[in-house]
Design a protein around this nucleic acid. Structure first.
Lengths: 219, 219
DNA sequence: TTATAAACAGACCGGTTGTCCTGTTTTGTC
DNA sequence: GACAAAACAGGACAACCGGTCTGTTTATAA
């Protein structure tokens, strides 16, 4: 009875990244030992070292391939596809809140989790994470600019709105994680929507609000 | 030549907490070894163990005594003393931004830094940190309620405003830390101030805004 | 087939970590 | 001054961590 082995570099790499991503989010980078990861992924030290020479290289891969993809999937794509930037932001907030309430616990934002632990630790980490933040904000700001070019969307500063949206989400997730309660997300969203009153919006309640805005504008 | 020793429990405890607080913020909890802390504080293992039996106990003391105090000092006290909640929030944002720009680097928010690393690690950590977050938000919300009782300050929901302010600050600090640039704080503050347009405010432009709100209320 | 490199296995090591333990000194109290 | 408790010193240790190293198996291409 011979023991066969099947070389599957991509599959093995993926399995390691799966486990690493999960553990880094749940326990953090420093609290995740390579031994635990190897055991969880069913991978030997030799294989791990072959694909990721150091722990830092592994974390960098998680950041660039997984965390960036997570932001892309849960934020950038929905916002781009949405009817407007504001509506997209609202939809993401509510979708995340609903998902968290359903699953019963809050792990926090993947990007923020790693950003807090690794930004000051290593410059390579910091740059990679900062790039994801920048892309996130720019996607929202670009959407606002599109809204302005097409429809109304008054004098909202795109960069300001994007920065506030990302900051509010990040901070809300931080609190939700600490309190283990996703309710804060909904409260922050409600606060964020007050910003809409100062400018126009597409949607069912748009006319009423636009009227208010007009009065406000002509003073 | 005799070697004298002066027992100074409070002083030694303070010195350890100083070093621990600094290291936990700069390097994080897991990346801070007790050996480093002992060396930096000039404290022996016996003394450290006498005041803080475990590393967890030390971190808990840092959270309850130092982090809570930092939030109290930089946020709660200024907001309470300020002319209004909104003005207080604005002042804190600007003060922190100015301080960070002056010192050239961004270490992030003490509370958020530890909250991200320790919330999921241990329930005791989580509860302590969540309490600080709650106190922070409540102080702002109470101030809004005071404003409403005294002056105008229209239909702003106190809890929503507080949650948004804390979230925006936390998230902005997170980005500022990752980008090593305090500019995001100013952008988020500017975005936050748009919220003011949806309700009234004490100050020069209060009357105009209050009129708008009244129209809105009676529809 | 055969050579060649990639893919993987698994033991090994030096250094570090947090904690514990035994002793010594200082301080407060009667 | 006697004595107990607190305050401090400093070594010891077992567990663990990340990285390296050598060797074996599998895939690839000539």
């Amino acid at each position: 009875m011979r023991k066969r082995r099947t070389n599957d570099p991509e599959g093995m790499r993926r399995r390691v990244l799966d486990v690493a991503e999960d553990s880094f989010q749940a326990r953090g980078y420093h609290a995740s030992s390579l031994g635990d990861l190897m055991a969880a992924a069913g991978v030997t030290g030799g294989a791990l070292h072959h694909h990721f020479p150091t722990k830092k290289a592994l974390a960098l891969a998680v950041i660039e391939e997984r965390v960036a993809a997570a932001v892309e999937e849960t934020w950038i794509t929905p916002v781009r596809a949405g009817p407007s930037a504001r509506e997209g932001v609202r939809a993401v907030f509510e979708a995340v809140a609903a998902e968290l309430e359903q699953q019963g616990y809050v792990r926090g934002c993947p990007l923020n989790n790693l950003a807090h632990e690794l930004s000051l630790a290593d410059s390579d980490f910091r740059v990679a994470l900062a790039g994801i933040f920048a892309g996130w904000r720019q996607a929202i700001a670009d959407k606002v600019r599109d809204d302005q070019r097409i429809g109304g969307e008054g004098g909202t500063d795109p960069d300001r709105f994007a920065a506030l949206a990302v900051a509010a989400y990040s901070g809300a997730m931080s609190m939700a994680k600490t309190a283990q309660d996703a309710g804060v997300l909904r409260e922050c969203l409600a606060g964020l929507e007050s910003v809409e009153l100062s400018s126009s919006q597409n949607g069912s309640a748009a006319k009423r609000r636009r009227r208010v805005l007009r009065r406000q504008t002509i003073r």
